[in-house]
Design a protein around this nucleic acid. Structure first.
Lengths: 183, 183
DNA sequence: AGATCCATGTAAACCGTTACATGATTAT
DNA sequence: ATAATCATGTAACGGTTTACATGGATCT
């Protein structure tokens, strides 16, 4: 039987919250989840099939638009239990892939003006991202700061706070770096 | 001809600094580069072969221990030029894969005590990592803070500062999160 | 004597991206 | 009329991991 991979748990985490079509999973994989995980629809459909084979998800069919039926997936009790155990199990050592740092590491060879341009574009992208996180945080706090770590609302809030911290430190670092590239 | 991927540039960045065997590349891919990129030796040998085919790297053979000859790779002039251009070219939108955040996102289902344990282990790992970065920074600054962005010494320093900032914000966030899991 | 380091390679399996393929419903 | 959205799938290719395979030199 298939050894469920991290993407499997990412998808199961969405199905554990509410039943979804593969198409909706792909959307959520862009918008709230996209800040820490992502996958395209081709990969998602295959993984959903494997989750069903593993007995961790099930679906009911509805007549959908287009040539294929719509499938509404949800997590089974076994799937939820496996997800709950996985969430708190020891983390594997991370294998980072940060292209920005790789660019900077090789930046001593590059034209400083071109480097400054690339970094400024990245700065602007991340300023927009921070602004978005701050809006979301404000919406959370307007309804009362979440406090119970066993609620969906709390964990959503926690990931947003992480996003804010993450963008803030990179922005500081980028501003310092761009400053060293002044002529 | 092969479209050089990000790993190709990661390896080329090491070869642009000094000639290396594939084995040494694999070592460096763990230790200083491992904080922002990584790959196993199987992938590295294949990519080195492709870099040579592309005319961006070359090697001279030396009798090595074991059944195969040792190959000392270095970047060609064309390779260096391509690397310099790539370093400052626009960044693709990043596709994050952060398992820690995925765990937290599903943590509402998990046992809070188990969650606290996993997060505490991660906290300790990252405290050690921060301590390491701080030592490296102190060594840099003892010899005078690097200031010229067109030197290897400066870009190495810049990546270490990034590491410090990155670990510090996650540590703050982890301490807050673990605090909410007190019983 | 045994473990670790240096050193390179192949093969199979799996993961991930891109392109191709179809087609109804709804909004502009 | 045209575009976007909803909806699912396959095929080909390329990237990544894991296991297998070999063997000298050096350290404990």
């Amino acid at each position: 039987m298939w050894r469920v991979n991290t993407l499997g748990f990412a998808i199961l985490g969405l199905l554990a919250r509410r039943p979804l079509s593969g198409y909706r999973v792909a959307q959520l994989m862009r918008e709230p989840i996209g800040f820490f995980w992502n996958a395209g629809h081709a990969q998602i459909h295959g993984t959903l099939r494997k989750l069903v084979e593993a007995g961790w998800a099930e679906y009911r069919t509805e007549p959908g638009p287009g040539p294929h039926d719509k499938k509404l997936y949800s997590a089974t009790a076994a799937g939820r239990a496996a997800l709950a155990e996985w969430a708190a199990s020891p983390l594997p050592t991370p294998q980072p892939h940060d292209e920005l740092l790789l660019r900077v590491y090789n930046g001593w060879l590059a034209d400083p003006a071109a480097m400054r341009e690339m970094l400024t574009a990245e700065l602007e992208r991340r300023e927009a991202s921070l602004a978005h996180y701050l809006t979301v945080r404000a919406e959370f706090e307007a309804d009362g700061t979440p406090e119970d770590p066993t609620t969906q609302r709390f964990v959503d809030y926690a990931t947003v706070l992480n996003g804010i911290g993450s963008e803030r430190y990179v922005l500081d670092w980028l501003r310092w770096l761009i400053g060293t590239l002044r002529d």
